[in-house]
Design a protein around this nucleic acid. Structure first.
Lengths: 225, 225
DNA sequence: TCAAAAGTGTTAAGTTTACACCCATGA
DNA sequence: TCATGGGTGTAAACTTAACACTTTTGA
């Protein structure tokens, strides 16, 4: 055995997932009301432990999959949380990731099994450990990223109205946006394309459905909302 | 023992430090030419292992101190690097931090002992493992942060000329800045204060020395360069 | 006396913000 | 017919970018 490594301690390394969803009521997080120890009965993020032979990114994907049944979800690392007493049970270093999921497409049975539910982001219950800090950092990072990269579409259906898109960005920024200015900005991008489909569910008149054209975006990847 | 935790594997958790310095030749990193295994003889970041009873942030401070003898240095976490084979010797999960140090104030003996030296950031040698990605991420993050928070001063002496400050930001952004526009922006901030001292080392005429007044900054923390 | 860096304002271009009405439809 | 959300343009305010010459002084 290599003494250079083995003279040093080892730690449990966990993953915690901040799972964002969006619907007409705004942004929500998918949270667990823990039916297991430690901190049974309290609210927490979905988590799990990194396994041998599994990268941190893969562990995050797995943890998200275990709760939602979803693959190929947009995820980004928030950072490592390494305070000594962050988990009162035992020393655990945790790596937080946020995920953007389409709130209409997940495995409801799995979510029920984990005793998880969507909670509006402005009505979060107290969370265990340092999960509030993780959520706060994830929100900042997501907001920052969403302002300059087209990641918001991961929270919407493939086809969406401009009103939906606007209200998504209003939820992300926590402020209202002028409708005409917003639509001007969207038009400038060129890769948010109007389809010939109409959504009649949100209004009597009906609203044009748009889609994000990634091909076009890649050719001129500029984004600013 | 708690089976919830103990059924999961443990890992060595390392810290790697991207140490930025700045002088008239621009930005540099403090790098080690390793005189120890693994990867002896190759270039790497300064690193170390997180210890029992030590937070990740504290470990980063300690690792920086071990190389430079410096305390109270501005540091920010870059993120966790958790690829399975990132360290070919053994599985190690590493948390990267960047540090901004005044290149004129560090313990030269310690640096010599570690076989470390300052390397211009645009002339980096090949680095081991995933250290190139760590450096790239650290540069992006630092640039982003420096554009909207007054962290650049950590790379300068307490007293600095506006030419030094400008060339620092030119180095951070990798582009030239218009002198008059730059000085207008500095003037608008109000907390970059002219002192009555003159630096005669950089020119015959001499340039006014300025200082960053943190008190004033805190009262109206706006920064944009 | 001249080379080298310090210091100093103005204008045009571009971007951002504010703002109000008509349209189509289902109830 | 009317209430509801969908859809559209313009002008003023502000921000950003471009630009050149004078000053000081040590060598």
């Amino acid at each position: 055995m290599n003494t250079y490594y083995s003279s040093n301690p080892k730690f449990h390394v966990a993953i915690d997932c901040i799972i964002f969803g969006f619907d007409k009521d705004g942004l929500s997080l998918l949270l667990l009301q823990r039916n297991f120890e430690p901190a049974k009965g309290e609210w927490s993020l979905m988590g799990g432990f990194v396994q041998e032979g599994e990268s941190a990114d893969d562990a995050a994907k797995r943890v998200l999959f275990e709760l939602t049944g979803l693959n190929k979800v947009y995820m980004e690392q928030v950072g490592a949380f390494g305070a000594v007493e962050r988990d009162p049970g035992e020393r655990v270093i945790s790596i937080a990731y946020y995920a953007l999921v389409n709130i209409n497409e997940y495995d409801h049975a799995l979510v029920r099994k984990h005793n998880a539910s969507w909670v509006k982001i402005n009505e979060l219950p107290p969370l265990i450990f340092d999960h509030p800090q993780m959520v706060a950092q994830a929100r900042e990072l997501m907001q920052q990223k969403a302002s300059c990269a087209p990641i918001g579409f991961n929270l919407l259906p493939k086809l969406f109205t401009l009103s939906q898109l606007q209200s998504l960005y209003e939820a992300i920024y926590g402020e209202t946006i002028d409708k005409r200015n917003f639509r001007k900005d969207v038009a400038k991008m060129g890769y948010i394309e109007k389809t010939d489909k109409i959504d009649k569910s949100g209004s009597k008149r009906g609203a044009a459905l748009y889609k994000f054209n990634e091909r076009v975006y890649r050719k001129a990847p500029k984004f600013k909302l």
